[in-house]
Design a protein around this nucleic acid. Structure first.
Lengths: 354, 354
DNA sequence: TTGTACGCGTTATCAA
DNA sequence: TTGATAACGCGTACAA
C-alpha cells in the first residue's frame, strides 16, 4: 500500500512527445545535433512533468560521481574548518560535491575513511594526515585507479602526490628570529610530534634561527606534546620553574601559546617583558588573548581552494605532470606578546573574518 | 592508447569460479541461500582480484546514494564546524556519507545548494537556515519525495519538519536574569536579525527577564546588527556614550560580546564593575578574553549528532510520525565578565576541547 | 543451493 | 537531425 511515486524518466518524456529517448537525452544535454524546436519542447515538457535527471544512472554510464572526498583530523578546528570552506567553494563552482570525513587523528580511522571514500568512488581525495600516520598503503588504491590525491598542510614526502603546504621551516625561522631581534636570548619551543612534517619543520626552523644567531640549542627548552591548551599550561609551568628559565617561547600552535600567556600571567610573569611568546596559525583566540599573540598567519581558506583546484587540474592533465607542490606564503603577525622594544615594526594589519 | 584499467566485476569473479553472477552477488552480500564454501571462495577470489563493488550500479538498482546533505551558513564558524563534526560522526557509523555545502548566509545560494543536493539525490538533508531565508519553497521537492529534512539551530516553524534546537528564549532569559541578579539595572542587548528564530527568541527572552523584574525595556538599548566583532565594537561605543549608559550588555553571540569587552576596556570602563557582559555560544574566544566571558553553552556537537539521528530515524518511520522537535539543554556558564558581587555562584567547570 | 533473465535510467555507437 | 540498440554493473523475481 505504499505510494510509489514513480519518477519521470526520459522515456516518459519521449513517449509524450513521440520522439525517442535518445533525442530527449540529447536535448536535455544541449547536444548540437538536435533541432532548436525539439530541444526547447523537450526541456519545457521535462519541467512540466517534474523530471529530474537520475544522476546515478548517468553516473553509472559515465562512470562519474561528481564527488571529492576530504579526510581531515577534526572538522571543528579553526584551521581545518576554514580549509574545508575553501575546498567547498571551489568544488561547488566546478559542479562537485564535497564529502567530508574525519580521522580524529587516528591512523586506523584514516585508513577506514580512505577505504570508504574509495568505495564511494570519489573522483579525487584531499587529505590532511592524521597525527600518527606513518604508512600510506591505504592510498594505493587511489593511485592505481588514477584518482587524484592532494595532500594539504600535513603531508608526506614519501608519497609522490600533489601537495599544498606552507613553508613551515621559514615561518618558524622568521618567528624565532623575530623573538631574537626583540632581544630574547633563551627561547623555548613547544613542539609537536616530529614524524608529522609540519611540526618537524617548525622545530627545524626554530633551531636554525638559534644557530644562525649563535644561540645555544638547549634540549631542555624543547618540549614535545600534542600542543593542547593543557600541555601548553603544563609546559609553561615547567619551563618557568627551571633554574635558568627561558625569556621567550615559540609555540608550534596558538592553543599552547595562548595557554603559555595565561599561565605565565598567573605566575606573575610579565608578558612580553619577562617572557615573550609567539604562536602559529593566527586562530581567533590569538588576537583575543592579552596581550595579543604574535603568530604566523596560515592561509587556510586559500589552501583549501588551491587543493580543490589541484584535484580538478589533475583530472585533466592525465599523466602529463608527475606531481606538483604548491607552497603558500605565510606572514608573521606581530602583536604585543612579543614586542619588547621600540625596534619592533608596528603590528601588522589584523583582518578578522567574523 | 589509454590504459583502460578494466575494473573487476561480479561477472569476472563468476566466470573464474564457474558460477553465476547471481551467486557471486549473493555471496558478497552474505545471502543465506549461498553455501558457506561458495561464499568464502567468492570472497577470497574477490579480494584477490581486487574487486570493489560498484556502488553506483548498486545504487541505481536500489535507488540509494548513501549520502546525507548538509547546508550551513559558513563551515568555518566554531558552532557550525562542531555541528558538522557531530553529523559526520553519526552518519559515518551508519554508513552514510556527508556532503556539505555552505550558503554563505545568502538566500539565493541556499536555494541553489538545496537544488544541487536534491539533484545529487541525497537521502536526507540537514539545514541551518541562511540569515535572510524567509520562504521555503526550495525544500518542497524534498518534501514531495519523502526525503527527510531536519532543521538545526536556525529553523523555521513555518515548515513542518524535524527540528533540533535549543530553548533560546529560556537561555536568554537565564542569562539576562543572571545579570539582573548581579545587580544590573540597565541592560542592553545586542540582537540579531529578528526574522531568524534564534535571534528573535533571544531578544524575547531578554525582554521577558526585564519585565519579570520590573525593569523598563528601553528600545535605545536594543541594537540590531549582524553581530560581528565590528558591530559589537561600534555598538558598545554607541551605548557607552549615551547620556544614560547601560550597566550591562547581553549579546546574542560571543563575537560581539568579546568586542564589547575589548571596546569598553579601551574606553577605560571596568568590567564587570561598570559594565557586565554576557554572550551566547561558548566559543573558545569566550574563555580567552579578559575578563572571561559569561555565556551560554551551546551543545553544538550533540545537536549535529541528533540531527543526523533524526534523518536516519525518519528513513525508517515512513509516515508514522508527522514531525518531531528535539530541544537540547543549554547551560549558563558564569565567568568573570558578569561577576559583580559575592552572591554569584562559582564559575561552572569549563571544559575545553583543544 | 544455484541459475536465468530482466530492469534500474542513462548515454555511446552505429545506422538511417 | 533522429532512432534503435546495446551497454554500464548490480540485484532480484522466478525457475530449476
Amino acid at each position: 500500500m505504499k505510494k510509489k511515486k514513480k519518477e519521470v524518466t526520459i522515456y516518459d518524456i519521449a513517449e509524450e512527445l513521440n520522439v525517442s529517448a535518445t533525442t530527449v537525452s540529447r536535448a536535455l544535454n544541449d547536444h548540437f545535433s538536435i533541432g532548436k524546436k525539439t530541444t526547447q519542447a523537450v526541456k519545457k515538457l521535462a519541467k512540466e512533468m517534474g523530471y529530474r535527471p537520475n544522476i546515478i544512472a548517468s553516473g553509472l554510464r559515465k562512470n562519474k560521481t561528481n564527488a571529492i572526498g576530504v579526510i581531515v583530523s577534526w572538522i571543528n578546528r579553526p584551521f581545518i574548518s576554514s580549509l574545508i570552506s575553501g575546498i567547498e567553494d571551489v568544488a561547488d563552482k566546478a559542479g562537485y560535491n564535497v564529502i567530508i570525513s574525519q580521522s580524529n587523528d587516528s591512523f586506523e580511522k584514516e585508513i577506514t575513511k580512505a577505504q570508504t571514500l574509495y568505495a564511494s568512488r570519489v573522483e579525487g581525495l584531499i587529505v590532511s594526515l592524521a597525527m600518527d600516520t606513518k604508512s600510506y598503503n591505504h592510498f594505493y588504491p587511489y593511485r592505481q585507479n588514477n584518482i587524484p590525491i592532494v595532500f594539504v598542510d600535513r603531508v608526506s614526502f614519501e608519497m609522490e602526490t600533489d601537495k599544498v603546504i606552507i613553508n613551515n621551516f621559514d615561518a618558524a625561522f622568521t618567528a624565532t628570529e623575530h623573538l631574537i631581534e626583540m632581544g630574547c636570548k633563551r627561547i623555548a619551543h613547544f613542539a609537536g610530534a616530529q614524524h608529522r612534517n609540519i611540526y618537524k619543520e617548525r622545530q627545524d626552523g626554530y633551531i636554525h634561527a638559534l644557530k644562525k644567531h649563535n644561540l645555544p640549542v638547549d634540549e631542555q627548552l624543547i618540549l614535545h606534546s600534542n600542543l593542547s591548551m593543557e600541555e601548553g599550561w603544563k609546559g609553561t609551568r615547567r619551563l618557568l620553574s627551571l633554574s635558568h628559565p627561558p625569556d621567550a617561547i615559540f609555540s608550534a600552535n596558538d592553543s599552547a601559546a595562548v595557554s603559555a600567556i595565561q599561565c605565565a600571567k598567573e605566575m606573575g610573569i610579565r608578558i612580553p617583558e619577562e617572557l615573550a611568546v609567539a604562536g602559529f596559525n593566527n586562530d581567533r583566540i590569538s588576537s583575543i588573548v592579552e596581550p595579543p599573540l604574535t603568530t604566523i598567519n596560515h592561509p587556510a581558506i586559500d589552501m583549501g581552494k588551491i587543493a580543490a583546484q589541484q584535484v580538478l587540474k589533475q583530472k585533466k592533465n592525465r599523466e602529463m605532470v608527475e606531481s606538483e607542490t604548491v607552497i603558500l606564503k605565510t606572514e608573521l603577525i606581530i602583536r604585543q606578546s612579543s614586542m619588547r622594544n621600540r625596534l619592533a615594526k608596528g603590528p601588522t594589519s589584523d583582518s578578522e573574518s567574523c
